[in-house]
Each structure stands twice: as C-alpha cells, then as structure tokens.
C-alpha cells in the first residue's frame, strides 16, 4: 500500500515529526511504500541544514535524511511555507526538495492513505 505523510510541525516544539518518522519507518518495514512526505506549516523547519541538536539528543533532520537515503523516500518542502520561514535552497538539507503545495494534493490523489501529524 502507498502512504502519503503530512508533517505540520517543526522538529522540536512538537512530537509530530518524530511520530511521522516512526510511522514511516514502520510502514516501510512492513513492506509498504511511502509515496511522499510533505512538510507544511512549521513542518518545513524539519528541512533546515542548520539544525544542530545537542549530542545526547536525536537528530530529527538527519533521521529524515537517512530514511530518504535508505528507502528513496521523496521528502518535499512547501515552497510558500518555506519562504516565509527562511527555508530556501540556501538552507535546505540534502535529501529534501522544495516544491509547490500541489505536491501535497497529488500525494493525496496517488497515495492509498494520507496520514497527517501535527499539533
């Protein structure tokens, strides 16, 4: 089954991104496909390459990057929401790409289920 995932919050104020990541990992382990993970609202902040968590904490940005690397997961950051929050090509972490909000709607159409995580 194809899952689309929407992440609405940034990496640290809320558990949303961690929950979404663990859901995605579990889905992949069960043999499902992640059609796309779309980052919207403050969720775009998951894609900053400038995040430097303390060494004893998990690195949310790196978790997503590794998932994308290991499983070819498409990580898409909304361009409009990103611009507002300073996420541009200059601040984008490798493994993510910036595109339009249409990519979320398209994921809703193409994926069998959309699962959202937020505040």
């Amino acid at each position: 089954m194809k899952f689309g995932i929407l992440v609405n919050e940034g990496p640290f104020n809320h558990q949303a991104s961690d929950s979404a990541y663990l859901f995605a990992k579990a889905a992949l382990e069960k043999g499902h496909e992640i059609y796309r993970v779309f980052f919207y609202y403050d969720g775009v902040l998951n894609a900053t390459k400038f995040s430097e968590p303390q060494s004893d904490d998990r690195n949310v940005v790196k978790n997503w990057q590794k998932l994308a690397e290991d499983h070819k997961v498409d990580l898409v950051v909304c361009v409009a929401a990103g611009l507002r929050r300073g996420i541009t090509d200059a601040s984008l972490a490798p493994g993510f790409r910036i595109s339009g909000l249409g990519q979320l709607i398209e994921a809703g159409i193409q994926a069998d289920r959309m699962v959202a995580f937020g505040d």
């Binding site: 919207y40 609202y41 909000l101 979320l104 709607i105 809703g108 159409i109």
Partner: peptide, 17 residues
C-alpha cells in the same frame, strides 16, 4: 493554520478533485 489551510484549498482547485 487558518491562512495556510486556505492556501491548500486554493491549490486543490487546480486538480479537478
């Protein structure tokens, strides 16, 4: 949220859903 949901709704109009 209200503003950014509205942006989502407007984009969705282009997809004939």
């Amino acid at each position: 949220y209200a503003l950014e949901v509205l942006e989502m709704v407007l984009i969705s109009a282009a997809f004939d859903q």
